[in-house]
């Protein structure tokens, strides 16, 4: 098992395609001009999972989680450091982060953004490998990402795709991350990516 450099490059292109498409959708939803980019994709497998720097990070993140099952099983997450989420939602809506009801607005906005981004990323992957997944309803949480990573590793997820994502809204730049947690079977399915495309 193991992803070759070519496979990582191809996966990055596929995920980037999904993210760019999600950016186009978000552009149509709001007045601000939004651009999304994936400059870097890291894949952690087996023992290297414990090298994920987020395992050692503390601090609350705003996280949207979209679990999937079917041909491949796992979870996908869009993660913003909490301060970045506030900056992003404030930039998008024009609402002051200190205003009353901003917490609810942040939850709704980040959930909607996460749902669109993760559906487009996962859909791009499953379309590329000709498989289908069924999604659970997306869940929003303010939580430490290290806690989620520990839980996923404990639940036998053998691969983590981590895509660093840049969100540009007009002059504001916010960085988030997309994680896709895969079990052994799902990893093997995605390893077939070059032969199926």
């Amino acid at each position: 098992m193991g992803f070759s450099d070519d496979q990582i490059k191809l996966l990055r292109e596929i995920i980037n395609g999904g993210v760019v498409r999600a950016g186009d959708i978000l552009n149509e939803m709001v007045d601000s001009k939004i651009k999304l980019e994936i400059p870097k994709l890291n894949i952690f497998e087996g023992k290297s999972i414990s090298n994920t720097k987020e395992l050692k990070e503390s601090g609350i993140s705003s996280i949207v989680r979209l679990d999937f099952s079917g041909s491949i099983e796992g979870s996908s997450l869009l993660v913003f450091p909490y301060q970045s989420a506030m900056k992003f939602v404030s930039g998008l809506t024009g609402e002051d982060a200190g205003s009353e009801g901003f917490g609810m607005l942040l939850e709704e906005a980040v959930t909607e953004i996460g749902n669109i981004v993760l559906n487009n990323v996962m859909g791009s992957i499953t379309n590329a490998i000709n498989c289908t997944v069924n999604y659970e309803v997306p869940i929003f949480k303010n939580e430490e990402i290290s806690e989620i990573l520990k839980m996923e590793i404990a639940n036998f997820k053998t691969s983590i795709l981590k895509a660093e994502t840049k969100f540009y809204i007009e002059e504001i730049q916010v960085e988030g991350e997309i994680f896709v947690f895969l079990n052994y079977e799902a990893t093997n399915e995605i390893l077939l990516i070059q032969t199926s495309k």
Binding site: N115, G123, T132, V133
Partner: peptide, 23 residues
Amino acid sequence: ADIQDSVRETCLSLGARVVLNKP
């Protein structure tokens, strides 16, 4: 919000006239 080709095909095979992506 689901963009999977297979999902679109399944919906059409189950009688949906069209599948539009959100929003």
